[in-house]
Design a protein around this nucleic acid. Sequence first.
RNA 1: GCCGGCGUAGCUCAGUGGUAGAGCAGCGGUUUUGUAAACCGCUGGUCGGGGGUUCGACUCCCUCCGCCGGCUCCA
Length: 653
Amino acid sequence: MCPWGSWFSCRRNVAQTPRPGKTGERGKQRKTGGNSFDAPPEITTLRPRCTRHSTARWKGLQSFRMNDDKVSALDRMRHSTAHVMAAAVSHLFEHVQLDIGPSTDDGFYYDFDLPHRLNTEDFARIEEEMARLVKANLPFERVEMSRAEAEQMLRERGQKFKLERLADIPAGETITFYRCGDFVDLCRGPHVESTGAIKAFKLTSVAGSYYRGKETNPMLQRLYGVAFLSEKELRVHLMQIEEAKKRDHRKLGRELELFTTEETVGPGLVLWHPKGARVRLLIEDFWRREHLKNGYELVYTPHIGRGHLWETSGHLSFYREGMYAPMKIDEEEYFVKPMNCPFHIKIYQAKKWSYRDLPLRWAELGTVYRYEKAGVLAGLFRVRGFTQDDAHIICTPDQIESEILRVMQFAKRMWSVFGFEDIKAYLATRPEKAVGEAARWEQATKSLEHALQTAGVPYEVDLGGGAFYGPKIDLKVRDAIGREWQVSTFQFDFNLPERFKLVYTGSDGQEHQPYMVHRALFGSIERFFGILVEHYAGAFPLWLAPEQVRLLPLTEKQHEFAQTLAQQLGAEDFRVTVDERNEKVGAKIRAAQLEKIPYMLILGPKEVEQGLVSVRHRSAGDQGVMTPAALMERLRAEGRPGGQPPPAKVQAT
RNA sequence: GCCGGCGUAGCUCAGUGGUAGAGCAGCGGUUUUGUAAACCGCUGGUCGGGGGUUCGACUCCCUCCGCCGGCUCCA
């Protein structure tokens, strides 16, 4: 079983996260879901705002609960707003069963069961009723009760979920209710003094959610809202949501003709259009060159393999639901690959290796196919066919530490080229059920931690959060608008070397089992591309722009000059087109701006006469005239991977 | 997979049971244009697919597909 299981899960966490605009609250759910009752917020401070995938199973973190006095005023207010919303819903609808209603990263939610199907048209009424309760400035009153009293009260009110939540509260713990007007809720608190403290809120969405997050449980209706301490903050938040929407890679992907998916092709299967394919090619070329520079060899492996291989690897027994049905070839079953590792292992096994040959670093942009449930597919973030930027490192025990450090530094540099400087790491250690000797786990975990310390990457430890086959490091990066993305992963694997009986000959002439590390820097090229589109808001830096320069002749009298220039630029490997349409230059500029082309050259009679170009940059605006040579020098400087764009001047796009 | 919403031209969107519309894009003309949209004309649709109700369905019902927001799954 492959190592990518846990990588897989990280990816899922990310992919599942709300679209921009509904930033980050969902992560909270799982944390609160298992709690005994209407839970107060837990550690929001560990995650920056807009964390989009913090659903992560940080078991270590989960056990940590904030004390009441540490709950921020904002969280307290949001939690109280959830109660007010629950009160409003109880007033407006019949037979409301309450579950829980915690605060989230930017607001709150409350889970209910009621016969009426809530929809967005109900929001106005609910908000109105909430506003009424806020205006009445009703006090929140804390009420302690004995378990018997609490049970009786909940039973009288017919609150079956609350009764179950009550039963979860450990014996000896104080049982508290909060009363606000006629609304009483089993809740640990704390709350604001009175509803008047609630300043600015808005209901945002309604969604189904399983009771206690269990698929077999009934599905409740969850109302989400956002809440802030002032109207102004709420407005700013709503504007940020708008900004995130503008960056949605699915929208930009279509507008900029980068990629599409198509119903008759199948969901989760990506069609790369020429412009998107060009960007992808540039990314992949860069990736390959960097890997070769960094001591990797590149390999290629097939898309399908015999069933026997996947039996040995363990995929068929442990991962089959993620794999597509086999195809029969010459009476033999073949499977489309969900992972690349077994093939890399087979390359290793093609000959005998000595300790002198190690470490081996083999990389592949391997396209894999995995079954994903229909409901979870999302743009490029969650697809059924994708390309891993995969590599496997096979080394001796005394090489692992330097190898891990090397990978860490490699990742840092790669991310920085794409403008991601803010990186955080999560070290996941041995879970209860695990394969591999304890000593190996310990050595591997230590080497991971040392690498993090040496590389100076801030990290948190997720105790027991590793996959059963080995410890791992996951990296998160922060994008241009502050959202976090789970991206790279480095995972030890004590399982596959065992299953495939991997060996090398040591200096003692004996056979030893090598260490194996799986790593992906970008995760999946598709998803990385989607992140990049949102990070750059579609305005790729010069080196990645599918079209770098567009020449805009004023009239057809300048076409010839434009073509000559275009040829010169093309000869220098710049990606150039000429807009020869019968349009005014303003219209040509507008088109180029909307296509987010970095440079526009306006060519009129003056330029032709003097042999100059009038340069306009998509964000810096009019740059004046210069010689073609000067322009090319500038393009070369800016057009290196990671090259700096000119200072941006505010410009409406 | 589950809950809710949505699906009308390439795109964005009007259209509440009685002959399918607009803007943009595209195409053809006119215009020869100086840093974010010239003007005129034309083309373009099984109203996501299938079934049903009805004299008549884009509109109402059922079902399937896809998309969006969540939940779940994620060895």
